[in-house]
Design a protein around this nucleic acid. Structure first.
Length: 225
DNA sequence: TCATTAAATTTGT
DNA sequence: ACAAATTTAATGA
């Protein structure tokens, strides 16, 4: 069988992806056989409104997902990391979206084309259920980051999410200040001020782009607001 | 490696 | 929100 991305031969790339983890090795191998394995350089475009071939699974690296307004202003939607997937919108025909996916780092991805993935869903209803769960989780995330919450709480939530994703209270911000401020729907200036505010309060320590969370409980409190 | 300069971030208004 | 000041990253010798 085709060796997958950076995974070992006996570890199909599907094994890394959350929604496929409950499947047995045999089934994961089948999925990996369906997938096209690619490596892309930093800056490459995975998908765009014009070209959206199917479901991408991220096996190494990070992807910036953003939309472009008619005036050319970029709004960052999310940042994908290892184990995330994107492109399910391509499954539902309405290619009316305006999102782009760009490689933030050198990238290894698996691509499952639209038709193949639909076949997969019919064959494995449990994958469909997993997919629904994940999409619902994203829906809640959008809800939480709505205009009703403050920049501070959105920032805290982001930092806590990041810390959880990296399994560490110490991490490096994956986005530049301007990118992160766009993501949080604010400006670089207020982002900087909130961040130093949290530092002065003693809730975290900041050294350049490195962040160390010191008082998780307080941050969680602020994140609720 | 160090100096120059470009870019990004922080701070004051 | 803008602009000035400061810090950090990139480039090239």
């Amino acid at each position: 069988m085709t060796a997958c991305c950076h995974c070992g031969d006996d570890l199909p790339c599907a094994a890394q992806i959350g929604i496929f983890q409950q499947l047995n090795l045999e089934e994961q191998r089948k999925i990996s056989a369906l997938a096209l394995h690619k490596t892309l350089p930093r800056g490459a475009l995975l998908f765009s409104p014009e070209e959206n071939p199917g479901l991408y699974l991220i096996s190494q690296g990070r992807v910036k997902v953003y939309s472009l307004s008619p005036t050319g202003k970029e709004t960052l939607r999310r940042v994908l990391r290892q184990g995330d997937f994107v492109g399910e919108g391509a499954l539902f025909g309405s290619a009316r979206n305006c999102t782009y996916g760009e490689a933030l780092t050198e990238l290894s991805v698996c691509l499952i084309r639209r038709e193949d993935f639909l076949a997969l869903l019919r064959q494995h209803p449990s994958i469909s259920l997993k997919l629904l769960e994940e999409l619902n989780r994203r829906l809640e995330a959008v809800d939480q980051s709505s205009v009703f919450s403050s920049v501070q709480s959105r920032l805290c939530r982001y930092l806590l999410d990041l810390s959880q994703a990296q399994q560490s209270e110490e991490f490096t911000l994956p986005l530049s200040g301007s990118e992160l401020s766009a993501f949080l729907s604010t400006t670089p200036e207020t982002l900087s001020r909130r961040l130093t505010g949290l530092e002065k309060a003693g809730y975290l320590k900041k050294t350049g782009r490195k962040i160390q969370l010191l008082d998780i409980q307080q941050l969680e409190k602020l994140a609720e607001g």
